[in-house]
Design a protein around this nucleic acid. Sequence first.
DNA 1: AATATAGTTTAGGGCAATCTAAATATATTA
DNA 2: TAATATATTTAGATTGCCCTAAACTATATT
Lengths: 219, 219
Amino acid sequence: MYTQAEENYLKAIFKIAEKEKKSVSTNAVAGFMKTSAASATDMLQRLSEKKMVNYEKYKGVFLTPLGNRIAIQLVRKHRLWEFFLAEKLKFAWHQVHDLAEMLEHVDSEELINRLDEFLQYPKFDPHGDPIPNADGKFTLRSQWSVAELPTGSAGILIGVREHDTDFLEYLNDLKIRLGTQIKVVQKVSYDQSCRILTDGRFDHLISRQVAANLLVKKL
Amino acid sequence: MYTQAEENYLKAIFKIAEKEKKSVSTNAVAGFMKTSAASATDMLQRLSEKKMVNYEKYKGVFLTPLGNRIAIQLVRKHRLWEFFLAEKLKFAWHQVHDLAEMLEHVDSEELINRLDEFLQYPKFDPHGDPIPNADGKFTLRSQWSVAELPTGSAGILIGVREHDTDFLEYLNDLKIRLGTQIKVVQKVSYDQSCRILTDGRFDHLISRQVAANLLVKKL
DNA sequence: AATATAGTTTAGGGCAATCTAAATATATTA
DNA sequence: TAATATATTTAGATTGCCCTAAACTATATT
């Protein structure tokens, strides 16, 4: 259908655009893809030829409806495979990303829909990110970062903002995983680090940066 | 690790060499890969550079121990994925091959070993072909083609020699699948077609060619 | 043994995706 | 606004994998 390189660029544009709403710069894409600006320009022009992005010289790109559809289907495939890897093959959450990165390029609607059915239509992946359904619709839910919680309040971990391996392994060491109850015990006003109690048992001091990456459902 | 093209050529050489024990000709490889002889020569020379095959101009190739190991691991991946697709995602046996063809290129020992464990170490794929274990060992078993069975004797279907979609769909129509009991009722000596009784209920007339492709365990 | 034919390789080129270096456009700021 | 810095694009090369056409080698036939 599309080459792996094309798919990876589309996903990159999609992800960058999620944060910054405006059009995506060549450098941003090159940075994300860990490649040169020249290569990025080249690919953006080719994606433009194929009507997957709107490209204007020196102005950056944004996804066309076609490009958007493809990107969302890729996100769907990626997250369903991640769910499969974690749920069925018992991989830890820091291990699933790279494997899903390969599996997502396997091209078959039928396969992914049957996988979805086999997994009983999960709504969120092992990092708590929503899995688009076959129509590309995401499930929304309200979530708060631990950094936003007032002292004394608590929540259940339902996601993480950062997918970096080191971060996830750090959480593993702290026995923090999806479903873990987190209560903010104290906030250090100097650096906004905070002391938390997890599952009512363990207390940890976490930095403002870590707190900002923990997403909870308020209790 | 290796490119998909390299992997596909190695598998092709492996499969051709299974039937004919001697070295594999350029044309045989080109034919199998549905590509030109020039392209095949090109790739065979590159595989030779990489020590995966022994190549002699105008003499054909054979796999080195390294090439053989890679090929067997590919067969392992292919057949485990086929088993997963049939067993867990409920794909029919004529649908699994093409999907496994893509999945087998996903490069991770860990993934395939966990998949193996998840599937409880199956020994045979949905076509009855043996699945090599992590050490590359195949399970052997005695099998007979229906064409070899004497009139009056019976067996249980444990495999098929032909993986062609049309053939497998034809068997589906006849409700013949792995585990089906097949009894040879009559043999037409003129063309060696034969009349069979399946599961003691349905009788069918099948050609010599079809009979030769049905593999059974004698009862 | 000479020749026809089948099989194989080489030559030369194309395309996708990458690179570095150089050129050019845009943005910042003195 | 002119100079400088940053961002982007173009030019030209490279690599992997594929192609066709032409050349070459092996083999089969007379």
